[in-house]
Design a protein around this nucleic acid. Structure first.
Lengths: 258, 258
DNA sequence: ACGACTTGTTGTGTATCGCACAACGGAGGC
DNA sequence: GCCTCCGTTGTGCGATACACAACAAGTCGT
C-alpha cells in the first residue's frame, strides 16, 4: 500500500487514515491487527488512526473490542455532496427497468481519476451473471463504459488514459490510434461496446449520460456472457440503452437533445 | 472547531482533514483560505491536508487554482458500505409516495452520536415548506424523529441524550422525567410527534423503521407548518406514516410484525 | 480449570513529520 | 500598472505521530 510514491507531497497520517477507509470499503470489516498489517504500521498506530476516524463516525466498531467497519458518517457525507449523488439514486429505477427489459446486468459508471468507477448496479434474472462491480474501478480502454467516458473526455484525461494500454485478452485494443478511431465511432453513433476485450466471454454495451450542462458525466452499460449478448444484438440493445441513458440524463437535469 | 477537547486521544492531522470533509459537506464548496480560517490553521497547512484528501479523491478542485468540493471518492466509499446504505435508496420511493399523499416534507433520520441525522428528504408540493435537512443533525429531544429514535435507544444513548435538554421554544421539553414519559407513550402507540418544540410554527410526526434484526434503525417523519399539520390531524397522519415505515422496514429486511 | 496465544488497548519517550513562516506566481479589481 | 488576495511551494523546527513495552480480555486446546 505504501510502496507507491505519491505524485504530490501529502500528509502521511491522513493518507494512512484514508487508506483505512479504502481497506474497510474493500473488506467490509477488519480488525486492528489486520489493518496494521495492510498499512505496514504498528498496531497501536493503526488503533489511533482508527480512533480518529471513529471520532468522526466514518468508522465504527462492530462489537466491543472487535472488528471495525465503515460508519454512517460516510453516508452522511455522501448525502451532503452535490447533485452528483443524485446520479446513483436517479439511475437506480431506470437501471432496474433496463435490467428487467434486457435481462442482463446493468451498471452506471463515472470517470474517476483515469478509471471508470461503478456506482449503480442491477442484475438480470439469469443465474449466469457478472460479478458485483459497485465501487470497483475498471480500465477505460477495455470496458464499454470506459470507452464512452473517454469518447467525451477532455484532452488531458484522454492523453493520460492512453499512455499505456494494458492487454487483458487477445481482443483488447492496445493501439492508441485504433482506440481513437473507436472513440470517433462512439461519438458518431452514440454508443460503445466491448467484445471480449476485458475478459474472455464477457461482452458489454454502453451509452453516455449527460448532466445539466450537457457534458457527459457518466455511462450506463449492460454486460453479459458473449453467448447471450452477441455482437449481432448490439445495435438493438444499444437503442434500448440510449433511451434509458436519455431518461437518466433528464432525471439529473439534462433537457437538451438526446 | 478545535476548542472542544475530544473524549479520546486522536490524531490531530487526521481529525483536521476529516473536519475539512465536514466543512465541505456543509458549505458545498470552499477555498483554502476559508477552510484554514475555519480550522484555525495556516493556509499552507490546510492546503496540504486538502492535498491529502484530493489524492484519495475524497475532495476535488472545482476549477484550477479555485475552490474545493467533496469528491466522488465519498460516493465510492458510500457505495461500498454495507446494506445500511440501502436505507436511503430503499426509503426514497416510499418517502416520495408519502410526500405526495400527505403533501408535506418527509424525512428519514438515523441516530448518529447523540443526534438525529437526516439521510432522505422529499418535499411536498406547497410553496411554504421546510428547509433542506439532509446531512444535518437535529436534537433528539426536540424533534419527532429524535424522540422515536430515543424511544428505542439503548440505556447509554438515552442517558447521554438526556444529560442536558436545551430549550428551543417555550414548548420544548426540558424535563427529563417528562421526556421519559413521552418516550413511554411513543413506544406504546408506535409514533412520536413535536408540536412547535424545535421551532415556532413547525410540527412533525415520526414512526420507527426497523432493520433485519427488528431493532429500530431509523425514523421516518413528516413535517410542516403548524397551521397545516394541526395536532388534530396527528393520529391520521401517523397511521399513514406507520404504513410507510412498515414498508421501508420490509425493504431493508424486516419481516416481523409491524 | 488453566495455560497459551492472539487481539485490542494504553502509557510513554523520541525521532519524524506536520506545521507555520516566508515567499512567489497568478488572477481580479481599481 | 499597481495593489490585494488567494493558491501554492520550499524549508527549518518543535510538536505530535509513532513504535515499543506492557496490560487486559477473549478464545482455544488440553
Amino acid at each position: 500500500m505504501g510502496n507507491e510514491k505519491p505524485a504530490t507531497v501529502q500528509v502521511q497520517s491522513v493518507d494512512r487514515a484514508l487508506a483505512i477507509l479504502d481497506i474497510l470499503a474493500i473488506r467490509g470489516e477488519a480488525g486492528v491487527t489486520e489493518i496494521a498489517a495492510e498499512l505496514d504500521v504498528h498496531k497501536s498506530t493503526a488503533f489511533r488512526l482508527i480512533g480518529a476516524l471513529e471520532q468522526r463516525r466514518l468508522v465504527e466498531q462492530v462489537a466491543e473490542r472487535g472488528k471495525y467497519r465503515l460508519g454512517f458518517g460516510i453516508v452522511r457525507l455522501a448525502g451532503a455532496t452535490t447533485a452528483r449523488l443524485d446520479l446513483p439514486r436517479e439511475s437506480q429505477p431506470v437501471c432496474e427497468r433496463l435490467a428487467s427489459e434486457l435481462d442482463e446486468t446493468v451498471n452506471v459508471a463515472v470517470l474517476d481519476s483515469g478509471q471508470a468507477t461503478n456506482i449503480t448496479q442491477v442484475y438480470g434474472t439469469a443465474a449466469v451473471t457478472t460479478r458485483n462491480w459497485i465501487g470497483q474501478r475498471t480500465p477505460l480502454h477495455a470496458t464499454s463504459s470506459g470507452k464512452v467516458l473517454l469518447a467525451w473526455a477532455d484532452e488531458d484525461e484522454l492523453t493520460a488514459a492512453t499512455d499505456t494500454l494494458e492487454r487483458y485478452t487477445p481482443s483488447t485494443i492496445t493501439s492508441r490510434s485504433k482506440l481513437l478511431s473507436e472513440l470517433d465511432l462512439i461519438r458518431e453513433r452514440g454508443w460503445g461496446s466491448t467484445n471480449e476485450e476485458l475478459e474472455i466471454g464477457l461482452n458489454a454495451i454502453a451509452a453516455p449520460i449527460r448532466g445539466g450542462s450537457g457534458d457527459v458525466i457518466a455511462a450506463v452499460s449492460v454486460s453479459g456472457p458473449a453467448y447471450r449478448l452477441t455482437v449481432e444484438s448490439f445495435p438493438a440493445v444499444a437503442e434500448t440503452l440510449r433511451v434509458g441513458a436519455a431518461e437518466i440524463s433528464s432525471r439529473v437535469g439534462y433537457f437538451g437533445e438526446a
